[in-house]
Design a protein around this nucleic acid. Structure first.
Lengths: 218, 218
DNA sequence: TCTAATTAAAGAATATATTCTTTATTAAAA
DNA sequence: TTTTAATAAAGAATATATTCTTTAATTAGA
């Protein structure tokens, strides 16, 4: 049996992981206002969530709070950033320089959170050869050669019909994690990480909630 | 007690709602290939999910399948699109024309899924007065006047520090649903719908899964 | 016409996530 | 030094979502 912290190997629940960047941005604001310590009850009240959920979520990191004092703001921020992988910058390729792909290339916020797009790939001759925000766009056939540099993260923003095909190309070329912005459920081996972020799925949830609210208020 | 379909008033689970656009894009591809009928087991096998989950998810819509045949593709597509609110185009305002806001304005995919940005607001004199992809950008002070036209959906892409402030302005101006792209937990009254879509939260989940995978494979 | 195989749908069982409760700790005040 | 109040943390209870099981329907084939 391997030694080491059991927590490191156990899977952190996705809902908890998704909340962590919220704590992080909240803590950064608190730090700006000069706060040195902050308690879970305080965070919870401010953010409108359950206090025990805050402590449970934060317990997945290696930070421990102090009774009657709370957490030290600065170390907690540092721990969260490193725990979430925001401190080291990973390189990524983007596949599909259409409307959404172009949009993402314009967002430099990604680099701040540890992801730097170093090249993009497409088949459209109108975009191949150009650069967007300093990122060169190559024909997808060049991907296998280019991947010598070893990016293991791929951003998938191709049209729905090409999703699975491009996914296969990505995996064959050594991509280990796919950030999938298409609404397609792509199929990959177990060793490949897939993160689905379909904006339209979120839009669907919003429309539904809005519909339910407006029909119940009548 | 009100009459009418009980299902319409009961909240559809968010996970189910998020999967629906996936079914939709899958069905559209199937339709292109000439399929008229499709069974839940077939969909499930193709998408790598549980067959009963497919039927359960689809049962929230008013479509029923036929035993030994499955669902009719075309009516199912139509029902899903209308159920998800993709058939009618809602108008929206975008708040914060920074990096991410600009990016979203470039994505015309949104209109296709029922959301049309008709105006954007910011305070930066460098962008105020310009247009991006045909969308005019106004100073946020002009929001209250502009909102006579009655958009009730707002897209929030301001910097973290201004999130809550701009949220209040949005709600005061009549916004009923906020698509929040900031990692901040904004506070609003119960009657306002908030849909959180923090790209960085998804990034965090991906980094974590990648870390776990790479550490367990050694 | 009858039988067998396939399927949707409903409900039960399981798994997962969230919230509640208790306990032990400890800083601050008496 | 002692007491009190506030807190983190662990585990139990609850709520939620997913998966499994059963049932009934019905089409295709014998």
């Amino acid at each position: 049996m391997p030694t080491g912290n059991k927590k490191k190997n156990q899977l952190v629940p996705e809902p908890a992981l998704r909340r962590m960047p919220c704590y992080l941005s909240y803590l950064k604001l608190a730090q700006k206002e000069g706060m040195k310590h902050i308690s879970s009850t305080f965070i919870a009240r401010d953010m409108g969530v359950d206090p025990t959920q805050v402590t449970k979520d934060l317990s997945y990191t290696s930070i421990v709070g102090k009774t009657r004092v709370g957490y030290e703001v600065e170390p907690l921020i540092e721990e969260l950033e490193s725990f979430l992988g925001f401190t080291v910058v990973d390189e990524a390729y983007l596949f599909g320089v259409g409307s959404l792909g172009t949009a993402l290339l314009h967002d430099h916020g990604l680099k701040q959170f540890g992801l730097k797009v170093i090249a993009a790939f497409d088949v459209n001759p109108e975009v191949v050869g150009k650069t967007i925000e300093g990122v060169p766009i190559y024909h997808i056939d060049e991907f296998k050669n280019k991947n010598r540099t070893g990016a293991i993260i791929g951003i998938l923003t191709v049209p729905v019909g090409n999703s699975q095909e491009v996914t296969s190309i990505m995996v064959e070329g050594g991509i280990k994690a796919i950030w999938n912005f298409t609404p397609v459920t792509i199929k990959v081996d177990d060793d490949i990480v897939v993160q689905n972020t379909s904006l339209y799925a979120h839009l669907a949830v919003m429309f539904n909630r809005l519909k339910v609210k407006s029909s119940s208020s009548k």
